[in-house]
Computed example of a mutant assay.
Amino acid sequence: MKHQVNKAVFLDRDGVINEVKTDRVKFVNRPEDLYILDGVPEAIKQLNDAGFKVFVVTNQGGVGLGYMTEDELNTIHDHMARELAKQGAHIHEIMACTHAPHENCYCRKPGSQMLLDLIDDYDVDIMKSYLVGDREPDIEAGNAVGIKSLMVVSTHPEAYKSFNDLSEAVEWILEDEKA
């Protein structure tokens, strides 16, 4: 068995990194629909500076349902990564489940295949890693692989802790890591 060496933070996209279901945007189906939430680039940069690998794991059933193509989704993700990079924030990899919600795949959260793949590909130590999500399936996916799963925006009884936004969660992660 190989030694797991990297600490990581897995971020959900919609509701954690960018606005969704707000007055400005319902769903993100084009790059111009992507509005990064306040404090997110700074929070991701803090994680980068602290030595965390930062991954985005997102359900994007809009592809499987025909609302956008895989290429359009990749364009949105490239745009997001560029916008974050302009402020010094680096995403190591973006993984998306593009299956329609009813397809019962293993990668769609609450399934944990995206997490398992990234853990394996990057030698991630789950004991030093965190997941930040805004919905129950995010928390379930993180808990299934044994990662401290944090909730933002709302609360969930299965979440390890809950916060108002990513900035608050990152502040806590950086303190928890020292413990």
Results as ranks from 00 to 15, higher is better:
D14F: 00
E140Y: 06
V25S: 02
Q113E: 13
N59M: 07
G15D: 04
E42H: 13
Y122K: 03
R135G: 00
L118D: 03
Y35D: 04
V153H: 09
E83R: 06
D12G: 06
G61Y: 07
F55W: 12
D38T: 10
E83V: 04
T69E: 02
D49V: 09
T69K: 04
C105H: 04
T75R: 14
V145S: 02
D12P: 08
Y130W: 15
P101F: 00
D78V: 10
E140Q: 12
H92V: 08
I17F: 00
E42K: 15
I91F: 10
F55Y: 11
K45P: 02
A144V: 00
D123T: 07
R82T: 11
D78Q: 14
K21N: 14
M80F: 06
Y67S: 11
Y67Q: 12
N48L: 14
A85Y: 12
N29Y: 09
N143P: 03
D121G: 04
Y106M: 08
Q60H: 09
F55L: 11
C107S: 12
F10W: 05
L37S: 03
R82V: 09
P101G: 04
M151W: 12
D125S: 05
A81I: 11
L47D: 01
G133W: 10
L115D: 05
V63I: 02
I17C: 01
L115G: 05
G66T: 08
V152R: 09
G39A: 10
H77A: 10
D120E: 14
V57D: 04
Y122N: 06
V25D: 01
V20C: 11
K21Q: 07
H79C: 11
V40R: 04
V56Q: 01
G66A: 12
R108H: 01
H79W: 11
G15H: 00
A100S: 03
I126C: 09
G111W: 03
H92E: 14
